[in-house]
Amino acid sequence: VIVMFAGQRAALLLTRPRVAHFSQVPAVHQSISGRTRFYKKVDVIPTPDGKAGQYSITLDGRVLKTPGRNPLILPNLNLAMSIAAEWDAQTNKRMGIQPVNMPMMSIASTAIDQIQVDRTHAVDTCMRYLPTDTALFHAPDYDRILQAQQKKHFLPVLEWAQKELDMNLATSQSMAGRIEHPEAAYNKLRSILEKMDYYTLTCVQGATLECKSILLSLAFISRFIDLEKAIAASRIEEEFQVEIWGVVEGGHDMDRLNNAVRLSSVGTFMSMYLDHEQIQQQWKRWKE
């Protein structure tokens, strides 16, 4: 029974869009990967144009740019300080500079170089997950243990989506296909995504890809669920299999680590970008 369900689930995953995760996009200066640190001092300064509340980062006095050679302008001091800290932490002489250890830089660069220029791809990517959204597919009744875990984590999110988004979405116990939703649900979701600023949309896209769920992503970004719950909800089926068959070293353990790093990076970026009151204000505007 377990193998059958896992196989059906694998078939469903094959129908999902294959797109690069934001941390896999060459959003940080990949050409310097492994290079010996070439700067001594990292500073945060107000942007040269003097625009209030915006900051740049300098390496030995030179203003840092994105991989797309765009000005790296951060919307507040917290984000600027966090990215400056990533650059300042590149002190391993043997490994050299490791862009993989700069998740805040990666998110900011992706937002500036890609999402700010053309948000269409990011919106479409998120939208494509709704028919196969992880939160909408539940195990059959004979898999009661797995089903119970799914209901524990998914049902509160579905109730939240119905209340906050006015979206009464169908669920399925069949893993063989896609769920058809009313056109109004797609229009509502697209409207929300298109109203988001490019930093928030970048984070939503990253969380969607990691959770295989636009619903879990929105619940996480809006802070209806916290990081711990987002991680647990995104890994229900894999952890269920681990409990039965055990951990495959170099496989499950790395998946856990990558999942935690990617979602915590998104959560950290958003918490530094918008505080609780600000995110609630934005959420009201997005829903209008």
Rank of each mutant, 00 (worst) to 15 (best):
L74Y: 02
E194Q: 13
A184V: 10
E239Y: 04
Y273A: 01
S172D: 00
D49K: 09
S23G: 15
T132P: 02
V25E: 14
G177I: 00
R178M: 13
T171I: 10
E210H: 08
N78C: 06
M95Y: 12
D143M: 15
G61S: 01
D43G: 09
S23C: 11
E194S: 10
A122V: 10
S33M: 08
L274E: 10
T132G: 14
D124A: 12
F220G: 00
A6P: 03
S222Q: 12
L14P: 00
E183P: 02
M102A: 11
S106N: 11
Q278E: 13
A207Y: 00
V19N: 03
Y142C: 11
R262F: 07
I145K: 15
M196S: 02
R262I: 05
E277N: 13
I2G: 09
V63A: 04
P75M: 05
A111P: 04
D197T: 04
I179H: 00
S109N: 09
L263H: 06
R235L: 10
S265K: 01
S271T: 12
T125D: 14
T200Y: 11
G61E: 05
E183S: 15
H29C: 06
M127L: 14
R262G: 01
N78R: 10
F5T: 03
R190V: 03
T208I: 07
L72K: 04
E277I: 07
N259W: 01
E288F: 08
S217A: 12
H153A: 15
I214H: 03
I214Y: 05
R223W: 03
S213W: 00
K188L: 02
L274S: 08
M272H: 08
K163Q: 11
S174R: 00
D43P: 00
L79R: 07
W87I: 07
L257I: 04
L79K: 07
R235G: 08
A11V: 09
Q24H: 14
F240Y: 15
G206R: 06
A219H: 04
A139H: 00
W283N: 02
D60T: 07
L136N: 03
D118C: 12
V44P: 01
V261C: 13
D226N: 14
Q30N: 10
V204T: 04
G61Y: 05
N187L: 11
C126Y: 08
Y39K: 03
A135I: 03
T268W: 05
P75L: 06
L169A: 01
E237I: 06
Q54R: 08
A11E: 06
I214S: 05
G50S: 01
T200F: 09
T91I: 15
M175Y: 02
E239K: 11
T58G: 00
D166G: 14
L136I: 06
E249A: 11
N187C: 04
D275L: 05
A184Y: 03
K152R: 13
M254F: 14
D118P: 06
R190I: 03
R144L: 15
M196D: 02
A207W: 00
Q98M: 14
P48G: 07
N258D: 10
V19I: 12
R69E: 12
Q90N: 12
R62F: 13
A176H: 12
D141C: 08
H21Y: 11
Y142M: 15
K212H: 13
P140G: 09
L77E: 10
T171M: 06
H181G: 05
D133V: 00
K229S: 11
P99A: 11
K229C: 05
T134K: 15
